[in-house]
């Protein structure tokens, strides 16, 4: 079982219409500058390598990069830790995790939960044996203890549930159809009232 590379993962997500935030994989400073220009500041830089599973463990994420100068110095720092860097647009919103895996008994299962610290500490998620329909995906979200947080409280607008639901359904379809894929993690997915985008993702496949 192995982690598939960024470009292949991006291709699979694109195939299933799973939106990801604008991201470029770069290996040189020049490429990084061009990418940041295209995306527009502020940007995020993230160390990238097939062997890096938990980026935060190696302090491989630098956010809030506002200009070329900051970009250059951050790029240098990250290249000491990895063979490449992701330049990524900055999106603000609520963190969500969406994932799927193959259970030894029931086959593909799909999970959606609150992301970030909620994933690690509160473990607020709901789970289904795939396939899940849009109706079922809605129920999964309503089951979350943090549903009200996503629905918005005190005058805050709800996140774009329609997009979120369609991503859950797509992840379910993806695992059912792509037999060589064992596990997928979209973590975090960032959701706000307008859009829902996968920011980080990991796809594990058999063999490779």
């Amino acid at each position: 079982m192995g982690l598939i590379n960024f470009q292949s993962a991006e291709k699979i997500l694109f195939k299933y219409k799973i939106p990801i935030c604008r991201t470029f994989f770069v290996v040189s400073e020049k490429e990084a500058l061009i990418a940041a220009e295209k995306i527009g500041y502020p940007v995020f830089l993230k160390a990238y390598g097939k062997d890096i599973l938990h980026r935060t463990d190696i302090k491989g994420v630098i956010g809030g990069i506002n200009n070329e100068k900051e970009l250059k110095s951050s790029f240098k720092k990250l290249m000491k830790k990895a063979k490449g860097v992701l330049v990524q647009e900055t999106i603000f919103g609520k963190e969500i995790i969406i994932g799927a895996k193959r259970d030894s008994q029931f086959g593909p299962v799909v999970l959606v939960g609150l992301g970030g610290i909620f994933t690690e500490i509160i473990k607020d998620f709901s789970l289904r044996v795939a396939p899940v329909s849009a109706v079922e995906a809605r129920l999964m979200l309503k089951e979350l203890q943090g549903y009200d947080y996503l629905a918005g409280s005190r005058g805050e607008k709800p996140i774009n549930f329609k997009s979120l639901v369609s991503i859950v359904v797509s992840v379910s379809n993806l695992l059912i159809k792509e037999k060589e894929i064992e596990e997928i993690d979209l973590n975090p997915v960032i959701a706000n009232e307008k859009k829902v985008l996968a920011v980080d993702f990991k796809i594990l496949s058999y063999g490779k």
Binding site: K101, Q105, F106, V109, L111, L127, V129, E183, D185, K202
Partner: peptide
């Protein structure tokens, strides 16, 4: 621990979902 999904969706969690579904 390779992914969060793998960790959280343990055997029993899946059974529980299957019963509910």
């Amino acid at each position: 621990i390779k992914s969060h999904t793998g960790t959280m969706a343990g055997d029993y969690q899946v059974y529980k979902s299957a019963f509910k579904q």
